[in-house]
Amino acid sequence: MKLSPVEQLFTVFNETTSILQEELSCTYLEALAETGENLFHGSVLQEEISEINAKRLKKSYEKIHLSAFAKEDIRKAFQLAILKGMKENVQPNHQMTPDSVGMLIGYLVQKFVRHPVFRLLDPAVGTGNLLTSVTNQQMDKQVEGIGMEIDDVLIKLAYVNANLQEQSVQLFHQDSLQPIFIDPVDAVIADLPVGYYPDDERAAEYKLAAAEGHSYAHHLFIEQSINATKPGGYLFFVIPNGLFESPEAPKLRSFFKESAHIQGILQLPLSMFKSEKAAKSILILQKAGEDTRPPKEALLVNLPALSNPAGTEKILTRISQWISENK
């Protein structure tokens, strides 16, 4: 049976990662970053590998010519390998954004951001999966990606991920809620890390800081992202459904009144989540500027199961219609 391009790539990623994991006595994800680097450079870069395993690795790499694969196939195969590695060692904020959500955010970015060349920031870039998924969908546009991530293994994976897909991405290994030094961007995407931010001293510098105790990290991410965006730029966040129901929600609402226009909220299908409590939505904002106006009516949508093509098509048509009426 002939393997699909994604299966071919995943097989090579997985086999070579397992060899390196054993040889280097490291985690699967660390070994995956190493094998991705090898594949990109077309050679075995680790000097401590035994001769026999170096030969095995070379033989596997020679089966693959990256130029023969579509960027999306490379991304999907690498994502499958990352998911396998994450099963070994999962931390709550390291969950990967589902592909269907990446496709949807990519569609929204394509529709809202009209510039032929634009800068796109993901301040919670993780392994780079959402950023590269969205970039791959901007067919007729040139995207300069910027990603920030505090975890050293995840950012190494994001770097390898972008290289394998030949994506133009600048990566910063840092806490995104500390001062960031980048020129303002045209758009932001983020699957917001939900929880409390432990650095109260730094949080106190934000308008959305809690009056007492730890502040919500996801609120601070929103404020930091709006500050990093050009006036009139768009922001697309995966948010918890209860975002506007928390004790800090009134502060968030008044912050939006002065700094951004809510364009829409798309509630993701409940079937995607383990429980109603874990359910999420996509929040679309536009940073306020001299020439911006809030929409007459925000786009409020309950998305059908994304496995329902007819229902999804209907909703996408409605979104498209709303954008042409409001832009």
Results as ranks from 00 to 15, higher is better:
Phe10Tyr: 13
Phe10Gln: 10
Thr11Phe: 07
Ser18Leu: 15
Ile19Gly: 02
Gln21Leu: 08
Glu23Ala: 09
Glu23Asn: 08
Tyr28Cys: 10
Tyr28Asp: 06
Ala31Leu: 05
Leu32Ile: 03
Leu32Asp: 06
Glu34Lys: 03
Thr35Gly: 01
Glu37Val: 03
Glu37Pro: 00
Asn38Ser: 06
Asn38Gln: 01
Leu39Glu: 02
Gln46Thr: 12
Ser50Gln: 06
Ile52Pro: 03
Asn53Arg: 00
Leu57Val: 03
Lys58Glu: 14
Lys59Val: 08
Ile64Trp: 01
Ser67His: 06
Lys71Cys: 11
Glu72Thr: 11
Ile74Gln: 08
Ile74Pro: 14
Arg75Gln: 07
Arg75Ile: 12
Lys76Pro: 00
Phe78Ser: 09
Ala81Arg: 08
Leu83Ser: 15
Lys84Cys: 12
Met86Phe: 09
Lys87His: 12
Val90Ser: 14
Val90Gln: 15
Pro92Asp: 11
Asn93Tyr: 04
Met96Trp: 00
Met96Thr: 11
Pro98Ile: 12
Gly102Ile: 00
Met103Tyr: 12
Met103Gly: 07
Leu108Glu: 05
Gln110Pro: 01
Arg114Gly: 14
His115Ile: 15
His115Tyr: 07
Phe118Pro: 11
Leu121Asp: 10
Asp122Leu: 01
Ala124Thr: 12
Leu130Ala: 13
Gln138Glu: 09
Met139Ser: 13
Ile146His: 01
Ile150Thr: 06
Asp151Glu: 10
Asp152Ala: 11
Asp152His: 13
Val153Gly: 01
Ile155Met: 01
Lys156Tyr: 01
Ala158Ile: 05
Val160Gln: 09
Val160Met: 00
Ala162Lys: 03
Gln165Pro: 03
Gln165Leu: 04
Ser168Thr: 11
Val169Ile: 13
Leu171Ala: 02
His173Ser: 02
Asp175Ala: 09
Pro179Gly: 04
Ile180Leu: 11
Phe181Met: 06
Ile182Pro: 00
Pro184Thr: 13
Val185Cys: 03
Ala187Trp: 13
Ala190His: 10
Val194Gly: 00
Val194Ile: 12
Tyr197Lys: 04
Pro198Cys: 09
Pro198Ser: 10
Asp199Met: 01
Arg202His: 03
Arg202Gly: 03
Ala203Lys: 05
Glu205Lys: 07
Ala209Pro: 00
Ala211Tyr: 07
Ala211Asp: 15
Glu223Thr: 09
Asn227Arg: 14
Thr229Ala: 06
Pro231Asp: 06
Pro231Phe: 05
Pro231Gly: 02
Gly233Glu: 10
Gly233Met: 13
Phe236Glu: 05
Val238Thr: 13
Asn241Arg: 08
Phe244Trp: 04
Ala249Leu: 04
Pro250Cys: 11
Lys251Gln: 13
Phe255Asp: 06
His261Pro: 10
Ile262Tyr: 01
Ile262Gln: 11
Gly264Pro: 01
Leu266Val: 10
Leu268Met: 12
Glu276Trp: 01
Ala279Met: 02
Lys280Phe: 02
Lys280Gln: 12
Ser281Met: 05
Ser281Pro: 02
Ser281Gln: 03
Leu283Asn: 06
Gly289Ala: 03
Gly289Ile: 09
Glu290Cys: 04
Thr292Phe: 03
Pro294Trp: 04
Glu297Val: 13
Ala298Cys: 06
Leu299Val: 03
Leu300Val: 08
Leu306Arg: 04
Asn308Ala: 15
Gly311Lys: 09
Glu313Arg: 12
Leu316Glu: 15
Thr317Gly: 11
Thr317Pro: 00
Gln321Leu: 14
Trp322Ile: 07
Asn326Gly: 02
